[in-house]
């Protein structure tokens, strides 16, 4: 089943890729990691390196669903003074040069709740945020942010997981928009990987419940793994591997070494090649 045409950058991007006959590479980096300037330079380089959609992590002190790599990224950013406001500023700066690449903010609810949901949605829409992934807001809490986000014209990306059974899927899909993110393992980010067989079966099951594009993430660390996912899903999401590459390019004080941005973008380019050649 192909994705239905959708309005907005996310819909246009997936429609264009469907026409090309290939899947998307979705990259994740944390806003303000390792510092504001490097983070922006990295973001600006991502589309050229082959990122089709960009997830930006909103730093949080207590990232319960993340493994060590992304936990550390959050703490590095916070130590440099990152905040939800600075994350929105980062998106604004990125949008000055790029009107097309979809931006999805990913994180936890408390910073948004503290900022104020209405104020956050208004500013996010104004700076050019296209979607939100908020890990600790399941469908049971849709009134909090999902429904207000939809009303503000921002997609609220649903997470489906190996524990989301058939009985629950309709509830999970009810207010789905943008795309559906399949979390391919029961676990935290950057740890284990699912088998091709398990991913294929899960994507097939999801397609019976939605016409939205399906992205698969968690445990995708190499161009080969990204390619394998790109053969069955509409997008492969890579986070911890990119963040770990960034961390490897920091000095002992946690400062960016020269060449960090090029180093990380080289990995993104390899991942993009994997995704782009997957179905050839």
């Amino acid at each position: 089943m192909s994705a239905q045409p959708q309005s907005g950058r996310i819909g246009r991007r997936f429609a264009a890729l469907a026409a090309e006959g290939r899947a998307a590479l979705v990259t994740f980096t944390t806003a303000g990691d390792p510092d504001a300037a490097t983070s922006l330079a990295l973001l600006r380089g991502l589309p050229g390196a082959g990122a089709d959609l960009i997830e930006i992590g909103m730093p949080f002190t207590d990232p319960m669903a993340d493994g060590p790599a992304i936990q550390a990224a959050s703490l590095r950013a916070l130590a440099k003074g990152a905040s939800l406001s600075s994350t929105l500023e980062l998106v604004r700066a990125f949008r000055a040069d790029d009107q097309d690449t979809p931006i999805i903010l990913m994180g936890y609810y408390n910073p948004i709740y503290r900022f104020g949901v209405d104020r956050f949605l208004a500013e996010a829409a104004a700076v050019g945020v296209d979607g939100l992934i908020v890990v600790d807001l399941p469908p049971e809490e849709d009134d909090e942010l999902c429904l207000p986000a939809l009303a503000a014209g921002i997609s609220f990306i649903r997470l489906a997981t190996p524990t989301t059974d058939q009985a629950r899927l309709p509830a999970v899909m009810r207010h789905a928009s943008g795309f559906v993110y399949y979390v391919s393992i029961a676990g935290v980010t950057g740890t284990a990987a699912a088998s091709d067989q398990a991913i294929t079966a899960a994507v097939d099951q999801l397609r019976r419940h939605t016409d939205l594009p399906i992205a698969v993430g968690f445990g995708i660390t190499t161009p080969e793994r990204a390619a394998a996912v790109a053969r069955v899903a509409d997008a492969a999401v890579v986070g911890s591997a990119i963040v770990s590459r960034l961390a490897a390019a920091l000095d002992d004080q946690g400062q960016a070494r020269s060449g960090l941005v090029e180093d990380v973008l080289a990995l993104v380019n390899q991942l993009a090649v994997g995704v782009r050649t997957a179905r050839q």
Binding site: P138, E140, T163, T164
Partner: peptide, 20 residues
């Protein structure tokens, strides 16, 4: 029934945990 005590409470967990 949704676990709220006034403003407070609720079920703010990742989807993986929600069925459990």
């Amino acid at each position: 029934e949704r676990g709220h005590f006034g403003l407070h409470g609720g079920r703010f967990v990742a989807e993986t945990l929600m069925p459990l």
